[in-house]
């Protein structure tokens, strides 16, 4: 289980390849990459700042990942989340899961993202032509997380 919270960008392809490197028991790798869009809720987005709660961030991610490992037979689980200033087109988040068979990897990846969206202390502030504004939490994210209860 690996957690990285970093300002620097990353290469999603390299992260995926690392998930099955040196482990011939891995039969399935599922990954999710979230990107900064240039448009959100009717406004052009020129950039974004990601604030977090240092200390709690890593603990909250670890708790989610431990739960995923208890629920599914996983061989590797990695979460990487950017913080600080980001531009449209840049990757924000990576969740990678390796397992022997595909269903555990699909489900664990969706579970980790759904819980991260509603339980990990990150906040997005978008830069738009109208000025900066904080992204509001979405009820649909709560609904998505509730399906794992």
């Amino acid at each position: 289980m690996a957690i990285r919270v970093q300002a620097a960008t990353f290469d999603p392809g390299a992260e995926v390849n690392a998930l099955h490197a040196a482990n011939l028991g891995v039969g399935a790798v599922v990954s999710f990459v979230g990107y900064v869009r240039d448009f959100n809720e009717g406004r052009d987005v020129a950039g974004m700042f990601l604030e977090h709660y240092p200390g709690m961030t890593e603990k909250a991610l670890a708790k989610i990942m431990v739960e995923a490992e208890q629920r599914w037979p996983l061989l590797k689980l990695e979460v990487l989340h950017r913080v600080g200033a980001l531009e449209p087109g840049e990757p924000i988040v990576f969740v990678g899961v390796a397992s022997a068979h595909r269903q555990a990897a699909f489900d664990a990846c969706a579970f980790v993202m759904d819980y991260l969206k509603t339980r990990a202390p990150f906040w997005k502030k978008e830069q738009t032509a109208d000025g900066p504004h904080w992204v509001e939490g979405r009820a649909s994210d709560e609904v998505a997380a509730d399906r794992w209860k």
Partner: peptide, 10 residues
Amino acid sequence: VAFFPPVTGG
């Protein structure tokens, strides 16, 4: 104790 609005990461 921390207070914050709904989280919006990911």
